[in-house]
Amino acid sequence: MPGFSRTHIMIRVALTGGIATGKSHVLDQFRRRGVPCLDADELAHGVTSAGTEATQAIAARFGADVLAADGAVDRKKMGPIVFADAAARHDLDAIVHPAVYRAIGAGLRAFELVGGAPFALVDIPLLYETGHASDFNRVIATVCPPDLQIKRLIDRGINRREAQQRLDAQMPAVEKAARADFVIRTDGSVEETNRQVEKILEILAS
């Protein structure tokens, strides 16, 4: 999978972690504190919108039934397919991930042109799985116990079987945390999580 240009002066920081480990909250906290942020999941929505090259490739591989009425990829239809079938998930990733990393590269170049911030943060859930950790100067990982991940997914309306499938499809959160430069535990209070954000922000901005 192609990487992106590493010519940026701005420090590049990746945020990763298992599903339902609090990445979105942590990203929002950095963003609220003025850090330029990108969200790979949001970029993936753009990549799989109606009429894109990736969407056309997905329809060719999985059939037009996986598209929504507006022509975009329907995630609710794709989810059960790819989380139950490793080969299907691999095929989807091979289509989507290169396009997402190109979008990340474009976003980081735009941040660099604007300037004014010591670092930029990119939320990439599958950073290690896609082999792109070396594209970044630092990595932050969110982590919480697997049973809490399952509970959070169930609270989102996903049944227990599908929740477990989604955990099984990713590298364990504790393994990601072991590889990261910074770890944020999200099984405590919101205030405790935010204090960890503040501490890391202070280090990275110094």
Rank of each mutant, 00 (worst) to 15 (best):
1 M>W: 11
3 G>Y: 01
4 F>H: 00
8 H>D: 09
10 M>V: 14
14 A>Q: 05
17 G>R: 01
19 I>M: 05
21 T>Y: 07
24 S>G: 14
25 H>Y: 09
28 D>N: 13
29 Q>D: 14
29 Q>T: 14
30 F>N: 00
33 R>H: 14
37 C>D: 02
38 L>A: 08
40 A>C: 02
41 D>L: 10
42 E>H: 11
43 L>P: 00
43 L>K: 07
51 G>P: 12
52 T>N: 08
52 T>E: 05
53 E>Y: 09
54 A>P: 02
57 A>V: 07
58 I>K: 12
58 I>H: 10
58 I>S: 05
62 F>Y: 00
62 F>M: 00
63 G>P: 07
65 D>E: 15
67 L>T: 06
70 D>I: 14
70 D>L: 09
71 G>D: 11
72 A>L: 04
72 A>E: 03
72 A>T: 10
73 V>Q: 12
75 R>M: 06
75 R>S: 07
76 K>F: 12
78 M>W: 04
81 I>K: 05
86 A>G: 11
87 A>V: 14
88 A>H: 05
91 D>P: 00
93 D>K: 12
94 A>F: 06
97 H>W: 15
107 G>H: 05
108 L>A: 12
110 A>H: 04
110 A>F: 02
113 L>D: 04
114 V>N: 08
114 V>G: 08
116 G>N: 00
119 F>T: 05
121 L>R: 02
121 L>F: 03
121 L>Y: 03
122 V>M: 01
122 V>C: 06
123 D>N: 08
123 D>W: 00
124 I>E: 02
126 L>E: 10
129 E>M: 13
130 T>V: 14
131 G>F: 03
132 H>V: 05
136 F>M: 01
137 N>D: 15
139 V>P: 01
139 V>D: 02
145 P>E: 03
146 P>L: 07
153 L>G: 01
154 I>Y: 09
154 I>H: 11
156 R>E: 11
162 E>K: 12
168 D>I: 06
171 M>D: 12
174 V>R: 14
175 E>K: 13
177 A>I: 12
177 A>E: 10
177 A>P: 08
179 R>I: 13
180 A>F: 00
183 V>C: 11
184 I>M: 11
185 R>S: 02
185 R>M: 01
186 T>F: 03
186 T>D: 01
187 D>E: 08
187 D>S: 10
189 S>E: 06
191 E>K: 06
193 T>F: 03
197 V>G: 00
198 E>K: 08
199 K>W: 04
203 I>L: 12
